[in-house]
Computed example of a mutant assay.
Amino acid sequence: MSPAQARERFRAGERVPTAGWCRGWAQANLIAVPKGLRYDLLLFAHHNPQACPVLDVGEPGAWSTALFAGDLRTDLPGYRLYHDGVPVADLGEVVAEWRADLVPFLIGCSFTFERALLAAGVPVRHLELGVNVPMYVTSVPCATAGSLSGPLVVSMRPVPEELVKTAVEVSGRYPLVHGAPVHVGAPEAIGIRDLARPDFGDPVEVRAGEVPLFWACGVTPQAAIMASGIEYAIGHLPGHMAIMDARDDDYLVT
């Protein structure tokens, strides 16, 4: 399936997490903020590059970008609307909510390197189960930038112990879509009390002989929106990504 075909299905009402969709094409997190906050968000991303690798930025009011030829208001499978830092609605489209002053940012997504993990023999549990990737708010603070501060969010994939090095090396070749894990094992060391209760997405089993690996997650800007009480913002529903007009290998560093 091409990105355009996937976006057409989402525009028609299909509401699903996008892990495994459009193999070979990159995916991105969406966060749109009022133009008065665009510098703060750019600076926040600069100070927290592993969590917030910026792939593309639109002009105020724009609903497409150079790397996303569709309509950012309708062509993702789910959106989350924020007022004063509070998530007030999960929506299937945001045409009425898309203000003329909103600046859309597309942030790298770790779904982009999952094809490479599979090719290297690393299993991806949420793809096996057909569920959303589990995501957790950690106790690790991000660097503050202007009005934005908040905790690091991570995604988790359990990996057989003998394949941990491979998973680290493979994902590390994709630095603009989060790169290598930020933490390996011991979830309590980063403030995660219960892997069976993710803050976003679905739980997956960590089996005997497996190690939980944690990657920085592009939901981190939404955590900062909440922690900072930002007046208005629109993000993607976690796990329901923007499928871009860019190849996953465009972000491979060899």
Score class of each variant (00 low, 15 high):
residue 97 E to M: 10
residue 78 G to M: 12
residue 74 T to C: 12
residue 73 R to F: 06
residue 81 L to M: 07
residue 107 I to K: 00
residue 118 L to N: 03
residue 94 V to I: 12
residue 94 V to F: 01
residue 82 Y to I: 04
residue 100 A to H: 10
residue 93 E to A: 09
residue 108 G to A: 03
residue 79 Y to H: 03
residue 82 Y to F: 13
residue 95 V to D: 06
residue 74 T to Q: 13
residue 89 A to Q: 13
residue 114 E to N: 00
residue 81 L to K: 04
residue 78 G to T: 14
residue 84 D to Q: 06
residue 76 L to M: 08
residue 82 Y to Q: 04
residue 71 D to G: 09
residue 115 R to H: 09
residue 118 L to C: 03
residue 92 G to Y: 12
residue 117 L to E: 01
residue 111 F to E: 06
residue 105 F to K: 03
residue 114 E to F: 02
residue 107 I to H: 00
residue 83 H to V: 11
residue 91 L to P: 09
residue 117 L to K: 01
residue 99 R to T: 14
residue 105 F to L: 04
residue 95 V to R: 14
residue 98 W to P: 01
residue 88 V to A: 13
residue 80 R to V: 15
residue 71 D to L: 11
residue 74 T to A: 14
residue 111 F to M: 05
residue 106 L to A: 06
residue 79 Y to I: 06
residue 74 T to R: 14
residue 85 G to T: 15
residue 102 L to E: 11
residue 72 L to D: 02
residue 101 D to W: 08
residue 83 H to E: 15
residue 77 P to F: 14
residue 76 L to A: 09
residue 75 D to K: 01
residue 74 T to L: 13
residue 101 D to F: 05
residue 105 F to W: 02
residue 94 V to H: 03
residue 96 A to T: 12
residue 109 C to T: 10
residue 81 L to Q: 02
residue 95 V to E: 11
residue 81 L to V: 11
